[in-house]
Computed example of a mutant assay.
Amino acid sequence: MATFRFDTRVAQDPDRVWAVLTDVNLIPQWFPAVREAHFDGVHRHLSTPEGTLKSLVVTRDDELRRFQYRFVEGMPLPVDFHLGTIDVLPDAHGSRVVYSQEILPEALAPVVERAVGAGIEGIARYFATHP
């Protein structure tokens, strides 16, 4: 199984960061590959230049500020296992955002790793330009 983790620090209150990152409608503003996004009550639907990804929301814990999801449709290969996790933690200067992934088959790791790397950079950019 491929596992990786990215993190960034932002000078924003953890509750504000959490509110932005869990608002599906705002995903296109911080995740570069996503053009449109909506939530149907169970799944997030993310439109990208390559097609639409469907992910099942596994965890949304407002107290811990932890969000987890699993891709269920739209990946370039069948997914045996996937778990994406976003944690928003208090930090001395605002918040630390940790974005991690676990995925099988490992052949999908480079695609997901590139996208999540761009996503974490997008998070830093979003909060730097939206004080």
Score class of each variant (00 low, 15 high):
Asp40Glu: 13
Val24Cys: 14
Ile120Ala: 07
Glu36Asp: 13
Phe4Met: 12
Ser100Gly: 07
Ala11Val: 00
Pro76Asp: 10
Met1Pro: 12
Leu83Thr: 06
Gly94Asp: 06
Arg44Ala: 14
Lys54Leu: 12
Ala19Ile: 01
Glu102Phe: 02
His45Glu: 00
Arg60Asp: 11
Leu89Gln: 07
Val58Phe: 06
Tyr99Phe: 15
Ile103His: 11
Pro76Phe: 12
Asp15Gln: 15
Asp87Pro: 01
Gly119Ile: 00
Pro78Arg: 11
Val97Cys: 10
Glu106Asn: 14
Arg125Lys: 13
Pro105Arg: 09
Arg16Gly: 00
Pro90Leu: 06
Leu21Trp: 11
His130Pro: 11
Phe81Leu: 14
His45Ile: 01
Ala124Arg: 15
Val111His: 09
Ala11Asp: 12
Glu36Cys: 05
Leu26Ser: 10
Glu63Phe: 00
Arg114Lys: 08
Pro78Asn: 08
Val42Ile: 06
Val17Asp: 10
Ala2Val: 04
Leu53Arg: 11
Pro131Met: 02
Thr48Gly: 06
Asp23Ala: 15
Ala124Met: 05
Gly119Phe: 00
Val57Trp: 07
Glu106His: 03
Asp40Asn: 14
Leu21Lys: 07
His130Ala: 09
Arg65Tyr: 02
Thr8Cys: 13
Met1Tyr: 09
Ala37Pro: 03
Phe4Thr: 08
His93Ile: 01
Thr52Asp: 14
Leu56Gln: 10
Ala128Asn: 15
Leu83Arg: 12
Ala19Tyr: 02
Pro76Gly: 08
Thr48Met: 10
Val79Ile: 15
Thr129Phe: 07
Ala115Phe: 00
Ser95Ile: 02
Asp7Ile: 02
Ile103Tyr: 04
Tyr69Lys: 03
Val42Asp: 10
Phe4Arg: 03
Phe127Pro: 04
Val42Thr: 14
Ala118Gly: 13
Phe81Lys: 14
Gln12Asn: 14
Gly122Trp: 11
Glu63Cys: 02
Phe71Glu: 00
His45Met: 02
Leu108Gln: 13
Ile86Gln: 06
Val10Cys: 00
Val98His: 02
Gln68Val: 02
